[in-house]
């Protein structure tokens, strides 16, 4: 028992390492605040391009989505982070990480939105277009609001995945929460910081988990 406390719940280490981990926590939050909205917006854009039914666009979207869904995100991150400077494109670390994540997450969000948009009956389109709304107006005011509601649970659970997934940035030494926890573990020769990091992730993610299960219950009730 003592050994467990000593190694995983070591209070002096917690106190000492807290500010260090907190700085990582903030970076993780910043990453989430950038990657999630950008992923959602670009995913929506991808799904809308697909829905134009313009053959060329559709094919480009399919290639984009398939590629980035099957490309290992870790390799993608390393590529963007270390590869782009080699071809003369120096990006700040934060930007490279966000770009790499966005390429990946937009394709996932895109697939979710695509399914949502396709779930809207044709009659909705016809009614809206018959009153003179343009394609884009119909998309924005009629189709997307309903589509987003239909796929809200999928969007939320994907968001949860994306937020956890920001920990991957540790492989390029980005000072987010997991990276800082690993450093702290190395400094203290003690895994307590990892437990602290887990606690911080919990604080960040638990409200979303709650939200998700509430939504899922509501969707079940509606059916």
């Amino acid at each position: 028992m003592d050994a467990i406390i000593e190694n995983f719940f070591n209070v002096p280490i917690m106190v000492k390492m807290f500010p260090f981990l907190l700085s990582g926590f903030w970076w993780t939050i910043k990453l989430c605040l950038l990657v999630v909205p950008l992923g959602i917006v670009s995913g929506l854009a991808v799904a809308m391009l697909y829905a134009t039914h313009i053959r060329v666009l559709k094919w480009l979207v399919i290639i984009y989505v398939d590629f980035f869904r099957s490309f290992p995100p870790l390799v993608l991150l390393v590529f963007v982070y270390y590869g782009l400077p080699l071809v003369g494109l120096e990006l700040p670390a934060l930007i490279s990480v966000v770009v790499a994540f966005m390429l990946n997450t937009s394709s996932y969000y895109g697939e979710i939105f695509r399914a949502g948009i396709e779930s809207i009956p044709r009659g909705q389109w016809e009614a809206a277009r018959s009153t003179g709304l343009t394609w884009l107006q119909t998309m924005v005011h009629v189709v997307v609001p309903q589509a987003a509601r239909n796929v809200a649970p999928d969007l939320t659970s994907n968001t949860l995945e994306v937020m956890k997934f920001t920990a991957l940035a540790s492989v390029v030494s980005f000072p987010e929460l997991l990276r800082q926890a690993q450093l702290a573990q190395g400094l203290t020769y003690n895994p307590t910081p990892l437990i602290m990091a887990a606690g911080m992730y919990l604080v960040l993610l638990w409200p979303i988990v709650r939200l998700l299960s509430r939504m899922e219950r509501r969707m079940l009730a509606v059916r």
Binding site: A127, G132, T134
Partner: peptide, 18 residues
């Protein structure tokens, strides 16, 4: 789109925005 405004259409399945 401007012309459609002048042509009302009513569908069998209503197609209201839910």
């Amino acid at each position: 789109n401007a012309v459609r405004r002048t042509i009302g259409m009513v569908f069998q399945s209503f197609n209201l925005y839910p």
